[in-house]
């Protein structure tokens, strides 16, 4: 295939302990480290490996957000993507609107495969990939742990609750990456320098004629209920005693 399109979302870094703002209006993101959504990094790694095997000629990374998302796209370019597209908006967008933006970019670029993360670790929605496949009218292979390409089809192993499921899909299609799909490569310094010269196109969302979806509004944020700290026991007999007290042994 000619092109693979990969989505990269800028999110609060995996290691940051996220806190709710004291007025309940949102979560604290000011001054917090931001990174590529980890599942999107896995998606990009898969696309790069497909290209390196000779099954694709170009990997395009797409992000939607403020100009700050350029950082994550530059990291994607340093990992090995060939060019980047940033659809710029100051608005917080819902998954269906994001899917519609992806579809618009698909219509322009005609990729043979779209790879996204299975969920973003900020909103934890796990919706955009499935929604994109639906409105595109194409197959979805979600929670993928292995992707084998064979001409116009792909065989994908999926991590499902029961175990590992295998499906065969016609291309083009949407694949969403699960943890075990691969291990993303580390970016090397010379690649960061090279990435600065790679093309990064900015498209204002207002130029794209995307129909907004009915949004679900977030009206209040609160910290989760805290579990009471329990007791510490010295040894196994004391542990068994404590379990017996609770009727659990």
């Amino acid at each position: 295939m000619e092109k693979i399109l990969v989505g990269l979302k800028r999110v609060v870094d995996y290691n940051v302990r996220v806190r709710v703002k004291s007025d309940g209006s949102g979560v604290e993101t000011a001054g917090v480290k931001m990174s590529i959504n980890p599942f999107d990094e896995i998606a990009l790694e898969e696309a790069l490996q497909i290209k390196e095997r000779g099954d694709a000629s170009e990997v395009i990374v797409l992000s939607i957000g403020t100009s700050e998302s350029q950082q994550q796209l530059r990291t994607g370019l340093a990992m090995g993507a060939d060019r980047a597209i940033l659809v710029t908006t100051d608005d917080e967008l819902d998954p269906l609107t994001r899917a519609r933006i992806f579809l618009e970019v698909i219509n322009r670029e005609q990729p043979g495969l779209v790879v996204l993360g299975k969920q973003a670790i900020d909103e934890d929605n796990s919706q955009t990939g499935q929604m994109l496949a639906a409105i595109w009218g194409r197959p979805q292979a979600t929670f993928a742990s292995e992707v084998k390409l064979d001409g116009d089809t792909a065989t994908v192993t999926r991590e499902v609750d029961a175990g590992l499921e295998t499906i065969e899909i016609d291309l083009p299609a949407v694949v969403t990456a699960d943890l075990r799909l691969n291990e993303p490569r580390y970016v090397k310094l010379p690649d960061i320098m090279k990435a600065k010269k790679k093309p990064l196109e900015e498209l204002p969302l207002s130029d794209l004629a995307i129909e907004g979806a009915p949004a679900i509004s977030s009206t209040a944020y609160e910290p989760p209920a805290v579990r009471e700290k329990g007791i510490m026991v010295e040894d196994v007999p004391a542990l068994i005693g404590a379990l017996k007290d609770k009727g659990l042994a």
């Binding site: 819902d94 998954p95 269906l96 899917a99 934890d124 929605n125 796990s126 919706q127 955009t128 990939g129 499935q130 929604m131 994109l132 496949a133 639906a134 409105i135 979805q140 979600t142 929670f143 999926r158 991590e159 499902v160 609750d161 979806a213 009915p214 949004a215 679900i216």
Partner: peptide, 22 residues
Amino acid sequence: TTFGKDVMPRVAALLGVNQVSD
């Protein structure tokens, strides 16, 4: 579950709405 997470957003998108997850 992985069943619902797979199919429900596809349903939502075909209906032209977002989904309330979890």
